[in-house]
Design a protein around this nucleic acid. Structure first.
Length: 871
RNA sequence: GGGGUUUUAGCUCAGCUGGCUAGAGCGCACGAUUCACAUUCGUGAGGUCACAGGUUCAAGCCCUGUAAACCCCACCA
């Protein structure tokens, strides 16, 4: 016997994965390139697609997978495996992300642990150090993906720093540069003084915090104006005081020069809509170099941008006594000095949003820097158009409009990062001042060089690297090897499956980049999953200690159990709780299926006949064929609509409740082995996308299966007799009623005592063995003489449990309750029929259904009442 | 400040185009049993579907409003 009495995933999983990988079934070769006879760019073959492609959102190369990756793989691999079974050439393309900033933070921490800082090394040294660090870490993540069952084509693994990726990124950058979509600008950027790098808006986290709003007097001849600020230390960078042009209080003094406190400088009072008369004193100091709003006010009024906070977070361009202080120290001193000069006129506590570095929590300092920007206007416009034309379908649907709103308000994209770990920006700055005719910046791919010479002019490479999202927005393009010359059947991807949290950062940018580079959307559908929360619906975090490691669950319960568990009860776009219970339930299903197979294999072993083709021989067999077909229909529909949870639910019910508890039980009377084989194979294949390992382990253990189930064909519908199938439903109803009634009589042991009597019922007579088996009643006989015992609550059958009069007496109360309950149902139905509008307006079929139901209930009540009278 | 999502059994969630006598898993209660499986089998309890109106023959589902929770976006000094 090959089947142990329970399924032990640990004994099979790694061997199975190894066998799959070695067989090459995960690596689709593009066997036939498109055939384009008429030159319209479209593939002329009838079945022009036949391909199914998904890229794995590349996990960070520097660490372990977390629960979100577990969900990602469960979703994506189910799709990939399903379409592979359906006969498509499925391509699951794995990747790894150098994760510029993320990895950099991890590495810098390592450096600090060893007592070093980044400033001891130059950019190139740092780059190669991180490269080695990542190379050490990367294998982990890839092994974990295998443990989750991801049927990736490993030979196609793409790393975000692979040469072809960098190449493609440079090509795009060059095209954008030539199209005028790239510009260098001095703008305020989000700057983290700890990490010393700029961020995109999206990488900044805003939090409401308590702060203080101070009132400070700025004096002029014959008067003063009180400004309100939360950042007194930046006053050294003030270029003006703004008031609202409609603010009557200040109208007369617009244009006056005021003396900037603690300095000798004078700044003007200007009129600008930005000043809100309702807020504070209605007058606001303008610091263009250190505040996003003020920057814009400064632009409108051509104000000087005075930088007073340096990149290390310390004060510069300020009077000596403040120079070199941190912003916090400086704030204290400024307040103290203002107070001593009697210029501090008030303070109050307010609540305001403060920007933080999403990694270290340090307050973001708006900083004036020269950076590379992408002009997003046209890119966003094209993306919006594509979305409005429904070129991409979203799951959940609501995300589409959210994305359109995002595009509509998108600001230019800062793509410069001041960290060494990343793709070097291929721009070189002229250092030869005499070459006045030459442009200041030129594009060149030779980023391995620090200096280059062109036409006798020397240029030095920009030290900055690209924002990670600039390269990863090319992911569908680079992973499928799309090129200008190659009509690639795998591009666009069928679906982009990823976390809803990176809709803006990643999905939005892939769409813009896909359209810009290829002229086509990069994927036809987007499925977004939500966060996996802990069992109580709280976010998982290290500090809360509620983090669940997917690999721990895989080790404990098996990969399939994890996949089934995490998909259960989950729908698109929602942040939903997850608990070990659902994994346990998945583990139980695997074991159930294992034992079902064990039973069937043992039955097949015992059988002598060897029939290749199956046919149904009794009602139970017809019934299970019908149920399995319904299940296949449901699963197919669910997969098309990404309803993973429902597909699994249906499979679970079909395998456990229908196949095992009814059909296999009924097969214990005698066995139709060819049908057993066929139905088991069908169910195994249908479950395979979700539970790849156990289905493969079983497949390999069965004597009558070939090849890998991972590479099998999706089952065809089974043939059966529908009338016979429906008859089995009646058996089920009878059996259920017997069981319920027996349970209502008290002890389950009664089943051993009481026989079943029938009057003129050929269905029961013909299937008495089966009914005995399923109900455990000892005898089934025809009723002789007057009715006796307990009549079953079935409308159209004369069935009695042969119980003594005293027991019937005890059952009286239950019977009365039953009559009342049916009566209530009957009343509800009658109410419906009494409404003439119902008969007029409801569909005829429904009205008939109601009429039939009424007849049935009436009959049932009549029978039960007779029974009551007999008692 | 703007937007979105959620609210159904003790817990986690289904319920797709309105037809529902509202389902599942886990948990709970009662019972069974060693011959595929205790990771088992059978039975059951438990819900005015957040609240208030409305549309409809018919509302968990559609509309309006209210409340709560969560999330995203946003420069408010």
């Amino acid at each position: 016997m090959k089947f142990a009495s329970s399924y032990e995933p640990g004994e099979y999983e790694s061997d199975i994965y190894g066998a799959w990988e070695a067989s090459g079934i995960f690596s689709p070769k593009i066997t036939s390139l498109p055939i384009d006879n008429d030159g319209d760019g479209a593939d002329d073959r009838e079945d022009s697609r036949g391909t199914y492609s998904i890229v794995l959102p590349p996990p960070n190369a520097n660490g372990n997978l977390h629960i979100g990756h577990g969900l990602t793989v469960a979703l994506e691999d189910s799709l990939i495996r399903y379409y592979r079974l359906r006969g498509d050439s499925s391509w699951y393309i794995p990747g790894a992300d150098h994760a510029g900033f993320e990895t950099w933070v991890v590495y810098e921490r390592e450096l600090e642990k060893k007592g070093h800082t980044r400033f001891e090394f130059n950019r190139d040294e740092l780059y190669s150090r991180v490269w080695n660090f990542v190379a050490e870490q990367r294998g982990n993540m890839e092994l974990q993906l295998r443990a989750l069952g991801a049927s990736c084509s490993w030979e196609d693994l793409t790393f975000t720093l692979d040469e072809n990726v960098i190449d493609r990124v440079y090509t795009t950058f060059e095209k954008m540069w030539n199209d005028g979509l790239i510009y260098r600008g001095e703008k305020l950027v989000n700057y983290c003084p700890k990490h010393r790098t700029a961020f995109a808006d999206i990488e900044v986290e805003h939090e409401d915090e308590k702060g203080t709003l101070w009132d400070i007097a700025y004096q002029y001849e014959g008067g003063e104006i009180i400004v309100s600020t939360t950042r007194p230390e930046t006053l050294f960078g003030d270029a003006a005081v703004a008031v609202n042009p409609n603010d009557k209080r200040y109208k007369k003094i617009i244009g006056k020069m005021v003396k900037l406190p603690l300095t000798d400088r004078e700044i003007p009072i200007i009129a600008d809509e930005h000043a809100d008369p309702e807020y504070g004193t209605g007058a606001v100091k303008i610091t263009p170099a250190h505040d996003f709003d003020d920057f814009e006010v400064g632009e409108r009024h051509s104000l000087e941008r005075i930088q007073v906070i340096a990149e290390d977070g310390k004060m510069v361009n300020v009077p000596d006594e403040y120079y070199g202080l941190t912003t916090t120290e400086c704030r204290k001193k400024v307040l103290k000095d203002l107070k001593s000069q009697n210029l501090l006129r008030g303070e109050k506590t307010i609540e305001h949003a403060v920007a933080h570095c999403y990694k270290c929590g340090t307050t973001i300092e708006p900083m004036l820097k020269e950076q590379w920007f992408v002009d997003v206007e046209k890119l966003a416009k094209d993306a919006i158009q594509a979305l409005k034309e429904d070129k991409i379908k979203f799951y959940p649907e609501s995300k589409k409009q959210i994305l359109i709103n995002y595009y509509e308000n998108l600001k230019d994209w800062n793509i410069s990062r001041q960290i060494p770990w990343g793709i070097a920006i291929p721009m070189f700055r002229k250092i030869d001042d005499r070459a006045t005719d030459e442009p200041d910046w030129i594009f060149d791919r030779r980023t391995n060089l620090r200096e280059i010479e062109k036409a006798g002019v020397k240029y030095i490479r920009d030290e900055d690297t690209f924002d990670t999202w600039f390269s990863s927005s090319h992911w569908p393009i680079v992973c499928t090897n799309w090129t200008e010359e190659n009509l690639n059947p795998y591009y666009p991807l069928n679906v982009m499956e990823t976390g809803a949290d990176i809709l803006f950062a990643w999905v939005a940018r892939m769409i813009m980049m896909g359209l810009y580079v290829t002229g086509e959307v990069p994927f036809r559908e987007v499925y977004l999953h939500g966060l996996v929360l802990d069992a109580h619906g709280k976010k998982m975090s290290k500090s809360k200690g509620n983090v669940i490691n997917p690999i721990d669950l895989v080790t404990k319960y098996g990969s399939d159990a994890f996949r089934l568990g995490i998909l259960r009860g989950r729908s698109a776009g929602l942040n939903q709780a997850f608990s070990e219970n659902s994994v346990i339930s998945g583990r139980n299903l695997c074991n159930k299926l294992w034992n079902i197979s064990r039973l069937i294999q043992s039955l097949v072993d015992k059988a002598d006949e060897e029939s290749e083709s199956y046919s149904t021989l009794n009602m139970g067999e017809d019934w299970i064929c019908r149920e399995i077909n319904d299940c296949l229909d449901a699963v197919e529909k669910d997969m098309k609509e990404y309803r993973f949870s429902e597909a699994i639910e249906t499979l679970y019910q079909t395998i456990w409740d229908k196949y095992a508890d009814w059909f296999l039980e009924s097969q214990k009377l005698y066995q139709n082995t060819s049908l057993l084989k066929e139905t088991l194979k069908t169910l195994l294949v249908a479950l395979h996308p979700f539970a790849p390992f156990v289905t493969e382990a079983i497949w390999q253990n069965l004597d009558w299966t070939e090849g890998f189930i991972a590479n099998a064909k999706w089952p065809k519908k089974l043939k059966y007799d529908p009338i016979s199938a429906e008859n089995f439903e009646n058996i089920r109803i009878i059996v259920s009623e017997v069981r319920t009634t027996l349970a209502g009589l008290g002890s389950g042991k009664n089943a051993k005592k009481y026989g079943l009597l029938y009057d003129n019922d050929s269905l029961v007579a013909d299937n008495s063995l089966l009914i005995k088996l399923l109900t455990k009643v000892p005898t089934i006989n025809t009723l002789e003489g007057a009715p006796r015992g307990l009549r079953l609550a079935l409308a159209n059958r004369e069935l009695y449990l042969d119980v003594p009069a005293k027991v019937v007496e005890d059952y009286k109360e239950a019977l009365t309750e039953k009559i009342l309950a049916v009566g209530r149902e009957l009343d509800a139905l009658n109410m419906r029929m009494m409404n003439p509008n119902y008969i007029d307006k409801a569909p005829a079929a429904l009205v008939k259904e109601t009429r039939d139901a009424i007849k049935e209930k009436e009959a049932l009540i009549a029978r039960l009442k007779t029974q009551l009278e007999i008692i």
